[in-house]
């Protein structure tokens, strides 16, 4: 049995770019801010098509976040774009005070998140961004899994009119495996594969890794449910509780530090509602290094094989 097919590869950041082009046409209030990396974060197409609504702010992410807040204050829909590290890490205090505390409906769109940024090395690999953004009150945190889901998430984020949204996605071309018929609703996890022995709750690129892991495990007669937890905050508690009750074992998987990301969010909730054996597939409290995305995922233990091992470990702990 083949669970899900991928239909070619495309970068999630391209999904962001394509969403912007549609939004530019549909909504005159959409304004995009660029920080001298327009080509990399893919806001260049919007800048070209809608030059009056694109503002270069220079290499100045703190300023960018404040400007976004000011634009939101007068009714614009500002989209601030930067690499994950410079979208969440560098301007954290600006996001905290001027955007989150002030409940400004700013969209912070972070490309180049996670270790798969690759060759640029640890300085550019944001492995802490979900932690930083998740801890902020009023913040919505989204980590879509492929090109189309990123595009849909960006467009759906306009529906959040109170408080900001942080969205993280990736640099590399990655498998496309969702389509328009795949359910997508912010705050609602999507079950990609049914299973009874354990549940893998994944976000971002690890969703595809989890699908592949589930397929391999099936050959060993291990039936795994795969949940695409694209929204890290607010968490879909119902889906998590259901998975814990029905499968009794949880593996979380993400391209992020092991602390304070998706795995922690799931554990925090289950500890309070239904303590369940859980294994964490994440970067284990270390910084990354240069290399290509796939090699790094393998070396740092966040690929399909790591998920398979984690499932086997958690099954041993299952009562």
């Amino acid at each position: 049995m083949s669970l899900i097919q991928s239909k070619g590869e495309k970068a999630t950041r391209q999904g962001f770019s394509d969403a912007l082009m549609e939004l530019g046409k549909e909504n005159p209030d959409v304004v995009v801010l660029g920080g001298d990396v327009s080509g990399s974060v893919k806001v260049d197409a919007f800048a070209k098509a809608y030059p009056d609504r694109f503002f270069s702010v220079g290499v100045a992410e703190a300023d960018m976040m404040g400007i976004a807040a000011g634009l939101a204050l007068v009714g614009k829909i500002p989209i601030a774009s930067a690499y994950g590290e410079f979208a969440a890490g560098r301007p954290f205090d600006q996001i905290r005070q001027s955007i989150a505390y002030s409940e400004m409906p700013v969209k912070i769109c972070a490309s180049h998140s996670g270790i798969t940024v690759g060759p640029d090395g640890a300085t550019h690999q944001s492995l802490e961004d979900m932690a930083l953004m998740r801890v902020l009150p009023h913040m919505t945190v989204i980590s879509p899994c492929d090109y189309l889901e990123t595009k849909r998430a960006v467009k759906a984020s306009l529906g959040i009119t109170k408080g900001p949204v942080y969205m993280r996605y990736f640099r590399d071309n990655t498998p496309m495996f969702t389509d328009e018929s795949t359910p997508f609703e912010i705050g609602k996890a999507n079950t990609l594969a049914e299973g009874k022995d354990a549940t893998v709750i994944a976000a971002g690129l690890q969703v595809w890794e989890a699908v592949q892991a589930a397929e391999e495990l099936l050959k060993e007669k291990i039936s795994v449910r795969v949940l695409n937890m694209h929204t890290i905050k607010p968490l879909d508690k119902q889906a998590i509780l259901k998975a814990a009750k029905e499968t009794g074992a949880i593996v979380t998987a993400e391209d992020h530090q092991i602390h304070c990301g998706l795995g922690s969010a799931v554990a925090e909730y289950l500890a309070q509602s239904m303590p369940t054996p859980q294994e964490f597939v994440a970067v284990n409290d270390t910084f990354g290094e240069s290399g290509n995305g796939k090699d790094l995922m393998k070396k740092y233990g966040i690929d399909k094989d790591a998920i398979i091992s984690a499932v086997k470990r958690v099954l041993k702990r299952k009562k």
């Binding site: 304004v31 703190a62 400007i67 976004a68 000011g70 634009l71 204050l73 007068v74 001027s98």
Partner: peptide, 13 residues
């Protein structure tokens, strides 16, 4: 932080 906010506000207006 106020200058950046004011700039965004001024651009929006």
């Amino acid at each position: 932080q106020g200058m950046s906010i004011a700039v965004g506000c001024a651009i929006g207006l």
